[in-house]
Design a protein around this nucleic acid. Structure first.
Lengths: 194, 194
DNA sequence: AAGTTTATGGACCGACCGGTCTATTATCGT
DNA sequence: ACGATAATAGACCGGTCGGTCCATAAACTT
């Protein structure tokens, strides 16, 4: 052991998270990060290795700190309540006064340059994984209260998923939270209540 | 009049459109455009003024050539048919074998760097304008066949709108067209038929 | 054919990109 | 007190960005 860090890893990661959330991956430059984190280039590279490695650390945190509610949502007993909790959770996430607008993963996943392709694909893969989880839960939960008539679990999962992404896009465009809530409510009108 | 253009403006615009569609605004570099359009920098700047000016010309074309179906959709007589035609039109647009995936305007509107803010806001404004048109048409058309019970025209417009954006995001991630069609079908299950 | 006007090729610009490298500084164990 | 070790500051790298400029080339008018 020798000279200790002059910064708190948690703090600087949180700062980096905000920047990536606001600006996406590509549009966030090293100096953006350096300013926000209060580090020099050397320290950043010493501690995190590269911009991309830092980004994945940030994604990890994002999922833990901001997407955690998804697990709670999946644990709900009926399809409607699962969907409700997911969608309302998203509206809270997007419009939060303390948070940047939109969704960090979406922001990054839609940036489309050649060199970030692998990164994009990884994020898409994550998303698809969650969609499959959702489908399976709908399948199970539809034993208690059915899905809207005519809708398979797969359809339902894709639909909810599509709405989640759509709401993130609208949020990024300044769509007010209250309006987003009404969208959720409208979307679930035909979903049987417990 | 003097020396005439050596290129066809329509052709090069179409080439530029494809590039912007694939890569978004920011991620498209001058040399990407130059390669695709077969022009030199001088010709491009002489003819179009700047990258941003060129982009707006491209957006214009995009709306004319690829978003034209929206007007036909709005002319449908019932809410359900309006929504159907809009949503199915989008799935065709996104998955078209000849077209890049996703939506040109969405790709550009989600890029989030400081210097392209004004551009983003303009695209968001366009989107909101269309949402309002849709709302008004739902209002009118609900006199013939009602909206799903409990849904206002504004709710319905926002919901459809949200789905449109969501489908574009999924398409960009490689979501298959057939699956997208099923999402549309599921979304409209509770919408009264003519 | 001369002169005017426009389009083209390509060198050039400063700014910024992500990333590396070296020299220095600070703190540990001994 | 004195290495050993790790973190810092900051110069430096080649490459790319969007954009400008000037000299040349080509087609119009007269």
């Amino acid at each position: 052991m020798a000279r200790p860090r002059e910064f708190d890893e948690d703090e600087v990661l949180q700062a980096a998270l905000r920047v990536f959330w606001e600006k996406g991956y590509e549009s966030t430059s090293l100096s953006d990060l350096l300013d926000a984190m209060g580090l020099t280039k050397s320290s950043l590279y010493q501690a995190f290795g590269s911009k991309e490695a830092l980004f994945w650390r940030v994604v990890e945190r994002y999922q833990r700190d901001f997407l955690g509610f998804r697990h709670a949502a999946l644990a709900e007993p009926t399809p409607r309540r699962i969907a409700e909790r997911l969608l309302y959770g998203m509206t809270e996430l997007h419009g939060g006064e303390m948070n940047p607008v939109g969704c960090l993963e979406l922001n990054a996943a839609l940036a489309c340059s050649a060199e970030t392709e692998p990164l994009r694909q990884e994020l898409v893969r994550n998303r698809e994984l969650f969609r499959l989880q959702l489908r399976d839960r709908f399948e199970e939960a539809s034993a208690t209260v059915p899905l809207p008539p005519g809708m398979t679990a797969d359809d339902a999962a894709s639909l909810i998923f599509s709405l989640i992404q759509g709401l993130a896009v609208l949020a990024k465009g300044g769509f007010p939270r209250e309006a987003a809530r009404k969208v959720v409510q409208a979307a679930l009108l035909s979903w049987p209540e417990a």
